[in-house]
Nucleic acid binder design. Structure first.
Lengths: 193, 193
DNA sequence: TGATAAACGGAGGGGTCCTCCGTATATTAT
DNA sequence: ATAATATACGGAGGACCCCTCCGTTTATCA
């Protein structure tokens, strides 16, 4: 009983799921280091699986890109939830989250370029990540607004836009440290005074 | 006597020069069709020379790109001179030249992208092509201004910028015919009234 | 008409892409 | 537990590409 959609299916094999995770992680580091056009065989090697397994999971390079990207976004979302659960003080929570996201994407520069340029990132992906990101930010600032530590006239989208701006400025000059400094200034400005 | 700079050198071999031209032409068509990351072996095949010869002439992919690009720019410059020499009526001359340039670059889309993105096009190249292009345009409009068929308040740079704008708009939507139509409108606007 | 500097071609080592299929294993049914 | 089988796995293999190296050919020059 309870087939997902039709034709009672087995449940997915555990090793398959495991390998998928391994591939995602490997792709993240390999693309991060070697740019978006790094060898897929290198990814498989790093993941410790056969090349065939990689191709079964991600038939095209673009699909792998997309999956990795989605994964990063999901990780950030999970982090936001964790920060909330742990009752971290709102301003520091927000600060930590933003730092994490900057660091995460800073290393993925090449990958992001590849994504945008090569595949023109499907609209679906764009809205997906947009929603997740603003959602995460929203959760974090709401708490701060609630307890009066953060101003209430700045929406999640505004913060997100500011972030994107900083990603870019950082890609050009100054390196990641400069960006993180700017972040701190920005977050400080979000405090209610 | 008369060594070019020092150490009396032989003059370059004729076959070498010929092959260089063949390679340039081949690269132009191959990159035009298959995008900027097309195989260099394909270029050599198309040119009918060995792969070794290609690498001797252009040690890196970027050097080949640059050379092809310079070559296209030079061709357009030569076309401008020819139109002048043949005393073609100024407005039609300008129109023809612009059409030619749009067509030439329209097929080279991938190549141009590759140039800009991959190698960040050396400043020297940029100013070189800028000068050549505005120079060509300058020659053509000067004649028109001289005989009173073209307005005299538009500089070559303005025309060039308009062109670039049209290259881009065309790359997105409508295809090359739409661009050519826009060109006609634009050139018509350049007429003295 | 040599001599010889210069250029040519392409084999070869190393790498990547992607497919295909025999083998191994997780699930499910008994 | 165990057998049956749907799934997933790994990696060999064919095709292509990069780039170097070097024996052979050829255009120049004396």
């Amino acid at each position: 009983m309870a087939p997902e959609t039709s034709k009672a299916r087995r449940k997915p094999r555990a090793d398959s799921l495991r390998n998928r995770e391994k591939l995602l992680a490997a792709a993240s580091t390999v693309f991060g280091a070697g740019g978006g056009q790094a060898s897929l065989e290198a990814v498989a090697r790093e993941a410790g699986v056969g090349i065939g397994t990689l191709y079964r999971h991600f038939p095209t390079r673009e699909e792998l890109f997309e999956a990795v990207y989605r994964n990063e976004v999901d990780i950030l979302h999970a982090l936001a939830e964790e920060l909330l659960r742990e009752q971290v003080e709102p301003v520091t929570a927000l600060q930590r989250w933003i730092h994490a996201s900057v660091r995460l994407f800073a290393t993925k520069k090449g990958m992001i370029e590849a994504l945008q340029l090569a595949t023109q990132a499907s609209d679906e992906l764009k809205t997906y990540s947009m929603d997740k990101m603003t959602g995460s930010i929203g959760m974090l600032i709401d708490r701060g607004v609630g307890d009066g530590t953060l101003r209430d006239d700045i929406g999640p989208e505004d913060v997100f836009r500011a972030l994107v701006g900083i990603y870019y400025s950082q890609n050009q000059s100054g390196g990641p440290t400069a960006a993180l400094r700017l972040i701190d200034v920005f977050v400080d400005g979000l405090r209610k005074r």
